[in-house]
């Protein structure tokens, strides 16, 4: 059986806070209207795609 790894809940909470900081969102008390867990199936982080290049 293959050993599996997963993020701890404290990690998920910390990353949620980090993401809110990134967006500049000021979270009201107890307003956790979304969760990373709900978004897991939507995509993959992977490597950044090639940034767009301005036309010369």
């Amino acid at each position: 059986m293959v050993q599996k790894f997963r993020a701890a809940q404290t990690t998920i909470d910390g990353l949620e806070t980090a993401f809110l900081g990134l967006t500049g969102y000021v979270m009201p008390d107890h307003d956790l209207t979304w969760s990373f867990n709900n978004d897991r199936s939507k995509g993959k982080s992977g490597t950044a795609p090639t940034p767009p290049v301005a036309p010369k």
Binding site: D39, G43, T47, P55
Partner: peptide, 24 residues
Amino acid sequence: KSGLKSLHNAASSNPIQRMGLVLD
């Protein structure tokens, strides 16, 4: 350029994906 960036951002709407891209 700004339009392309907006499209690029819109395609990366997953919060976790965005954080991964920022780290990249």
